[in-house]
Design a protein around this nucleic acid. Structure first.
Lengths: 113, 113
DNA sequence: TATAGTGCATCAGTGCCATAATACAGCGCG
DNA sequence: CGCGCTGTATTATGGCACTGATGCACTATA
């Protein structure tokens, strides 16, 4: 429902964001080149570039022309804070309302870890 | 993040589903005509028709040409069961993973009702 | 029969997404 | 310098989803 018909560049954006937050792409380190990630994911380089573009616009990723892109300092923390906020203020209320409508008690979900 | 750029006919579909589950559109009763709901929601009649179409394909809504559409018997229960299943098996695992990544404990969410 | 209300099929327009083929600009290194 | 790697800009194209305007078939009612 949430990950099937979504545009490719948005899926890539989410993947990259998750990798940064999880530390798989570490700060101050280079991240895969546009062409490399495109080949790895079977996508078009331009599509990957479009995904990266969202991050450099926010200052989470910095560019050195002719060299590559690296994760900015504090990017992981910034990302986590931001996503955490949007989750709490936007997504969770909808999810909670949905659960109420469907008659799902929160307690039965926590057990499953 | 989840309700801004979503297609209109999908928003309408969710609205209608919620109305059926909540009993605001009762079983065996007529539901608003395509044109009426379109006028009420400021949408195009065809867009509303497309939303309705999803339900009649599943047998949750039945059509009488020239008369209108009514909610099938047991539609509310069927809908709730189905949505409940897809929520538990598809949506919740993703949400849970997201919460873990963002460092959100489930307990702090339950308090808020 | 006449009218007004249904849903529905057809055709067309629009915009986003993804891809492709180039070309260009900056950097590191031998 | 020359080569190879970076990211980026440009233009064009095909596909697809969404939306819309119009007209038709059907039904209930007077």
């Amino acid at each position: 429902m949430s990950n099937q018909s979504k545009p490719v560049y948005l899926k890539l954006r989410d993947m990259i964001a998750a990798a940064i937050i999880d530390g798989r792409y570490r700060e101050e380190e280079m991240l895969p080149s546009v062409r490399a990630l495109a080949a790895e994911q079977g996508a078009n380089p331009l599509t990957v570039a479009k995904a990266y573009q969202q991050f450099q616009a926010d200052g989470l990723v910095e560019v050195q022309r002719g060299v590559g892109m690296y994760v900015a300092r504090g990017a992981a923390e910034t990302l986590r804070k931001r996503e955490r906020e949007t989750f709490l203020k936007q997504e969770w209320p909808e999810i909670r309302g949905r659960m109420k409508r469907l008659g799902i008690a929160p307690e039965e979900l926590i057990e499953r870890t």
